[in-house]
């Protein structure tokens, strides 16, 4: 499994907004890295630059020795099939069944006509069943995606990413629209699966306690720049202030904090995602 290295990556949108400002990162094989930061810090843009759903303005993204930023359209598609992605609002195609959604993860490997007729190779089908078993959805195969609950949908999203047999997993706010318990279950599932398969993963997450709980390494992003890079233990109130701005980081909900929804970026972000 290759290492992901990001060198001097910059993204300036057509509107002139500088979303990412010369970010450099090396994520070794098998590491689960959490990317934290306030809304608008550039977390989503950064991971979308890795598989070029967003075209970076300058800088390089290397997966192993392949420079993704230099690939043409066809080669890019080949690279993308080795990069799995899990989305904030699950991003399942709602009118397709669970099985079709999972199999859509194989699109990069099968030809157009096979995918049009839904005739996927036997191996793909059996992989899909194995993964659906693993994420606990074995009896939902023919349900339409919009019949599932949030947690179930995210499990389908995870199976879709993993059936790509990826080298790298990009995870964009996987728990933003889930309740606290389901959030933990989903994060646990993702980290377990990464460990089982020795997957490298970049996880955007706004929930700091969750990041501390599940990630081996935390990178803090603020206004497009890295302001923290270290182990979860290093996330002191000082560091959090550097990432998110001034706030009483030791206060818990019970001790009262009237302006919490305004200054706790996670809450704001979750609201926006609705």
């Amino acid at each position: 499994m290759p290492t992901l290295s990001i060198n001097d990556l910059t993204k300036r949108y057509a509107t002139g907004d500088l979303a990412i400002d010369q970010v450099s990162l090396v994520i070794p094989e098998g590491q689960v890295m959490a990317l934290i930061g306030p809304s608008g810090a550039g977390k989503s843009t950064l991971i979308r630059c890795v598989n070029r759903l967003v075209e970076p303005t300058s800088g390089d993204v290397l997966l192993g020795d392949q420079n993704i930023t230099k690939l043409g359209a066809r080669k890019l598609r080949r690279a993308r099939r080795h990069i799995g992605m899990i989305f904030q609002e699950y991003a399942l195609v709602e009118r397709l069944t669970v099985m079709e959604n999972v199999l859509s993860g194989r699109l990069g490997y099968v030809g157009f006509w096979a995918s049009w007729l839904r005739r996927f190779p036997k191996q793909d089908i059996s992989d899909a069943f194995t993964l659906l078993d693993r994420v606990g959805l074995a009896d939902m195969v023919d349900k339409r995606a919009d019949e599932l609950s949030g947690g179930q949908r995210q499990r389908v999203g995870i199976a879709r990413a993993l059936i790509q047999n990826p080298d790298l997993l990009l995870v964009d706010e996987p728990t933003a629209s889930l309740d606290p318990k389901t959030s933990r279950q989903i994060m646990r599932l993702i980290t377990e699966l990464c460990r089982e398969r020795n997957l490298t993963a970049v996880v955007n997450i706004h929930d700091v306690p969750l990041a501390k709980l599940f990630a081996e390494r935390v990178v803090g992003l603020q206004a497009g720049q890295i302001v923290f890079d270290g182990s979860p233990e290093g996330l002191s109130p000082d560091v959090l202030t550097r990432i998110y701005g001034e706030e009483d980081w030791l206060a818990t909900a019970e001790t009262g904090n009237a302006d919490m929804p305004e200054s706790e970026p996670g809450v704001v972000e979750a609201d926006r995602s609705l």
């Binding site: 099985m99 079709e100 839904r118 089908i125 059996s126 069943f129 195969v141 023919d142």
Partner: peptide, 15 residues
């Protein structure tokens, strides 16, 4: 259900 099982394992077809 487009689901069935044969000797090679579970089978899936769209319809």
């Amino acid at each position: 259900m487009p689901l069935s099982t044969d000797e090679t394992g579970p089978q899936w077809r769209r319809r």
